[in-house]
Simulated scan of single mutants.
Amino acid sequence: MNPDLPPSLDQLRGLHLPAEAGGTQGAVMLAIALGFTAALALGLLRHLATRRRASVRRAALAELAAAGALPPEQRRVAQARLLRRLARTLQGDAVADRQGAAWGVALDRLFATSFFTTGPGRTFTEGLYQRGTPDPGPVDAELARLFARIGA
């Protein structure tokens, strides 16, 4: 017995730390934290991409509505320019620079449709600048429907 210690403290045992576990608990916690951080970053990126596409959709629909007030020939030209800008924004210059049938295929791929290769949308690939091109009635409504699906 130690005469310097009070009697109650003399009965205490020394502190014994557990044996080293090899650091596996720390590695597991780090893996969990990294997984959570990666999931959070992925969610943020998906959210930003969705917001960007929704913004593009709103702008395209507004511009399409403004083009609807133009005379038929000018309206088709404005719609064609809008389609080029939209393709450039969403898929890049290589897609937007295509001509003829390749342009129709690119538009169909962009909008997941066959409107531009087999439907009335061919006016944007075949006969846009020809005089006397008839004004296909369903084109305006179909373009509005297709634009509304961007990013949806």
Rank of each mutant, 00 (worst) to 15 (best):
M1E: 12
N2L: 09
N2M: 09
L5T: 11
L5C: 04
P7I: 04
S8P: 00
D10I: 00
Q11D: 03
L12R: 02
R13I: 08
G14P: 07
L15G: 00
H16L: 09
L17A: 09
P18T: 07
A19N: 14
A19V: 12
A21I: 01
G23F: 07
G23K: 02
T24C: 04
Q25P: 00
Q25M: 12
G26A: 15
A27L: 15
V28S: 05
V28N: 02
V28I: 14
M29N: 11
L30S: 14
L30K: 15
A33L: 10
G35C: 10
F36R: 05
T37V: 05
L40R: 14
L42G: 11
G43S: 13
L44R: 07
R46P: 00
R52Y: 15
R52C: 04
A54H: 10
V56D: 12
V56G: 02
R57V: 05
R58L: 07
A59R: 15
A59G: 02
L61W: 00
L61C: 03
L61S: 07
A62R: 10
A62I: 04
E63P: 00
L64M: 07
A67Y: 10
A69K: 05
L70Q: 08
L70H: 05
P72L: 05
P72Y: 04
E73G: 10
E73T: 12
E73Q: 03
Q74F: 13
Q74I: 04
A78K: 12
A78E: 13
Q79D: 04
A80T: 08
A80C: 00
L82P: 08
L86Q: 00
L86R: 01
A87W: 02
R88W: 07
T89N: 08
T89R: 15
L90R: 03
Q91M: 12
D93R: 09
D93P: 15
V95C: 10
V95K: 11
D97H: 07
R98E: 11
G100Q: 01
A101F: 00
A102V: 03
W103L: 03
V105G: 01
A106Y: 07
L107N: 02
L107K: 05
D108P: 06
R109Y: 00
R109I: 02
L110V: 11
F111I: 15
A112F: 02
T113M: 03
F115C: 09
F116E: 02
T117E: 08
T117C: 09
T118D: 12
T118E: 13
G121D: 01
R122A: 13
F124S: 08
G127T: 07
G127P: 01
Y129W: 06
Y129P: 12
Q130L: 04
Q130E: 06
G132D: 02
P134M: 11
P136W: 13
P136K: 10
G137Y: 05
G137A: 15
P138A: 03
V139N: 11
A141G: 01
E142M: 03
E142K: 08
L143W: 05
R145K: 09
R145G: 13
L146M: 06
L146F: 04
L146H: 01
L146E: 08
L146S: 04
R149A: 15
R149E: 10
R149K: 13
R149Q: 11
R149T: 14
G151P: 02
A152D: 14
